[in-house]
Design a protein around this nucleic acid. Structure first.
Lengths: 156, 156
DNA sequence: CTAAGTGCAAACATTTTGCAATCCA
DNA sequence: TGGATTGCAAAATGTTTGCACTTAG
């Protein structure tokens, strides 16, 4: 989805809820979509302070992030580091996450068969599924290699 | 696993780490295993205050819960209600959770095929899996029924 | 004895909120 | 114009921590 149309989608969303498009909201929105990594609210606050443009307070950043999550522009993920991180939803397909316990890297993966088995489990329990999240905790390829090297050195 | 042997396991665990079995730890441990529901740290603090026995401060409760999680006696679950809830590990097999958005009920389920697909996904990415958690958010059977009744009444 | 544990209150860290001033539509 | 929005600082919240005193082993 192109920058222009995605901003328009945000305007529509605001209009639909009787909300206004302020310079702060526009800037927060654009900065959030200029990153293609996961980012925290504090990181975003920092970027906005460091870079030129209409200033936006921490409170407004938090409020706007909430709005963007409500509008399904972003989704919040608890990567277990004491703060939520955000990722784009618009223009991205659903996926789950692998969290590296060593370096903190977040990898994404998707397996349709897992999704189907989840639905089957819900059907069996009469549970009406709204959303889910699956987080795999462990060591990414790079960190796993380093760990196995240093443990074999230790054992020698 | 019987009460007696599980307490012994706790003693062993403490001894192995050079820690002491105090009256507070014993009481917290026993109270935690006397419940077969998920419970929060605050709930446990409340029970200990309300019921007779050696008193234990909030700080000690939190510290001991941490210990019990380290020792794999309990596991902590973020049920997205602003506080962690704990459940027994000893004597229970691994399972995942369904969280009811309406009543807060936590249901458990397990599907070995999902576990296998997770492992397969990790192999593919070179990710060394340590643990995982899968949370399905939605409406439990009872709440789903109520919701569909009231929405059809509204539409009429 | 003495390392470990406890209680207390203060500290923490992230996020939320009340309110007066300001700004869009 | 008037409801929506903002910034600020204070509040909220669940959990952790420093420290002086106590206790298990």
């Amino acid at each position: 989805m192109k920058r222009e149309s995605i901003i328009r989608a945000f305007e529509e969303f605001l209009k639909g809820r009787g909300l206004k498009l302020t310079s702060q909201r526009r800037r927060i929105f654009e900065r959030a979509f200029a990153t293609h990594e996961h980012f925290s609210a504090e990181a975003l606050v920092g970027w906005l302070q460091a870079e030129a443009g209409p200033r936006a307070s921490r409170a407004t950043v938090y409020r706007t992030l909430g709005l963007l999550v409500d509008g399904k522009f972003l989704s919040a993920l608890d990567a277990e580091k004491g703060e939520l991180v955000y990722e784009h939803v618009l223009g991205h397909t659903h996926h789950d996450h692998m969290l590296c316990l060593e370096c903190g890297k977040i990898e994404e993966f998707h397996d349709e068969r897992i999704e189907e088995l989840q639905l089957a489990a819900c059907r069996k329990k009469g549970f009406e599924l709204v959303s889910h999240d699956l987080r795999l905790r462990g060591y990414c390829r790079g960190c796993a290699r380093k760990r196995s090297l240093s443990s074999s050195a230790r054992d020698r």
